[in-house]
Design a protein around this nucleic acid. Structure first.
Lengths: 203, 203
DNA sequence: ATGAAGACTGTTTAAAATCACAGCCTTCAT
DNA sequence: ATGAAGGCTGTGATTTTAAACAGTCTTCAT
């Protein structure tokens, strides 16, 4: 549904990084001349064409005729918080985004791509309680012992990964719960991401 | 040590709130004319004088001759992260601020005033692990059952509060630890704040 | 080999934004 | 009752920005 943005050239990525840096450090986007100064351009048009290219690819939005008229597309503003996941649709589908949270993704490493609300107490002993938000870095692969967001058919679950050949164990951190054992030759299992952090809001 | 900013008038506070709102929503500060539009001023100078007043009180910084030249003072940028606390100095002393984290204080309610790194496992069963950052709202009073940051003489600790008359119990959430019982008639106990959230960065 | 896309220089113009000057009215402490 | 501070209107000059036009040089897929 969203306009697919073509991938950026490395130079364009540098410009975009500079814009994000400037917004983060100065609380405002740069002007064309500030872009020139940062990259050593002698012509403001060098900055102008880069911005046009970024806007054409959907990486930024340009407001006409306004000083510092660079805006970030909605998708770039804050981390999406994924609530209840409906069966059969992708995790990051717009309908699952409860809200967006003003958190710097780079606060975690590797950076967080989204937040996921955890249901239940199956990871209690790892300090993950019911209702907690976990910060997730999108990744299809993970190492043993990492806490992952995994999808088994239509079910999304948060567990510790333990791979043994074609068998994958998803271990809870609570003796009241059972491990999930999956034979990947028979049942498809998709790793949606790796937990990189946790946020709790006391009420 | 910091320049003490005189308190703002209610109108000035409204203007400052608008500036913060604009930075949050648009990723850039407003122009004079945008302030006018927001408040219905007919003269750009109304905005100008308000900004001058805010700058004079240290609530904002004004860069001369630049479009959208409103900057926020360093103290307003992100939540301070308090690391190891040295005995005898106030919790929020500059020397304790490890770094600042780009987190919206209003993500928690009541809003967070700072983050505090927790040492040890005394609150393990409340899902607070060694190295976790807790979001703290400054408050001198707290209700029974709330998790508080308390100072007993020179020691800072995070525990669940249980007050019984002049006796205060600070309860751990881990059977391996002992409750701290304080007679406030004999030993001074200061509540520094209430835990309003938690952030964990997996490594 | 050719054309399209990217990455620039250089120049100009119009609009956006800052900021100074000259006032008016109200509140509020001395 | 008086002066200082806050909260405005109204008008322009000046500077900063955005953004158009006209080119050059390189890379890279067809």
């Amino acid at each position: 549904m969203t306009t697919r943005s073509r991938s950026l050239t490395s130079r364009q990525q540098e410009i975009l990084d500079f814009i994000n840096q400037t917004i983060k450090h100065e609380n405002r986007p740069p002007t064309r001349l500030e872009v020139c100064a940062a990259f050593g351009f002698r012509s403001p048009n060098a900055a102008e064409t880069h911005l046009r290219a970024l806007a054409a690819k959907g990486a930024i939005l340009l407001e006409e005729g306004r000083a510092r008229g660079i805006r970030l597309p909605y998708a770039a503003q804050g981390l999406p918080l994924i609530g209840r996941v409906a069966a059969g649709s992708p995790l990051l589908a717009a309908e699952h985004v409860e809200t967006r949270c003003q958190i710097d993704p780079a606060m975690f490493s590797p950076p967080a791509d989204y937040l996921l609300r955890v249901r239940g107490m199956s990871m209690r002993d790892a300090g993950i309680l019911d209702g907690d938000l976990i910060a997730v870095h999108r990744a299809a692969e993970a190492r043993n012992g990492q806490i992952v967001v995994a999808r088994i058919e239509d079910e999304v679950t948060v567990k510790t990964l333990q791979r043994k050949g074609a068998t994958v164990e998803l271990l809870p951190a609570n003796p009241d719960y059972q491990a999930i054992v999956v034979d990947t030759r028979r049942t498809p299992l998709v790793i949606e991401g790796i937990m990189v952090g946790l946020i709790r809001k006391d009420s």
